Amino acid sequence: MKIPPPKSWEEFEEITLDACKIKWENPDLQMHGRQGQAQCGVDIYGANHIFKNIGVQCKNYESELSLSLIKDEIRKAETFTPKIEMFYIAVTTNTDVNIQREVRFLSHERANENKFPIMILFWTDIIQDLIRNNSISKKHYPQLSLTDLNTAETRDVRLFSILDLVYNTLNLDLYNNLIFGEFGQMVGENPLQIQSVILTIKYSSSNVLNQSEYEQMAKLIDKYKDYLFHVGKRKEEFSWEIAEKISNEFTGIVNGIEYNLTGKELAVFNVAKILAKWSKWEVDSDSLWPKESWENLKTFVGRIKIDELRNKIEKSESEYMEMDHFKRLDCPHKIYNEIRNILIHQAE
Rank of each mutant, 00 (worst) to 15 (best):
E189H: 14
V97F: 14
D96H: 09
I162H: 08
I131R: 12
I313H: 12
R340L: 12
P82Y: 08
H333S: 04
L275Q: 13
G33L: 04
F80H: 08
Q39N: 15
Q35W: 02
K138S: 13
G41W: 05
R104N: 06
V91M: 02
T151F: 07
I44N: 10
N133E: 14
L266A: 02
I70T: 03
G256C: 01
E338G: 02
I136D: 07
R310G: 15
P117Y: 05
V91F: 01
S63E: 05
K23R: 14
I162P: 02
F80Q: 05
T299D: 09
L275N: 12
Y141A: 02
D222C: 03
K264N: 12
Q37V: 05
Y214F: 15
S66W: 12
G302K: 14
I131N: 11
E11I: 14
L266F: 00
A19T: 06
R75V: 04
N190T: 15
D164E: 13
S205V: 10
Q128T: 09
F180V: 10
K139P: 06
S293W: 07
S318K: 11
C331N: 10
S107W: 07
K202L: 08
N255W: 01
E78S: 12
L146T: 15
V157M: 07
K138Q: 15
P27T: 06
R75T: 08
R303V: 02
N114L: 13
L130R: 04
N176D: 15
L228K: 08
E244V: 10
Q211V: 07
S135H: 13
K315A: 06
S212H: 13
E14C: 00
D173M: 08
N177Y: 13
I246L: 11
A38D: 09
G232E: 03
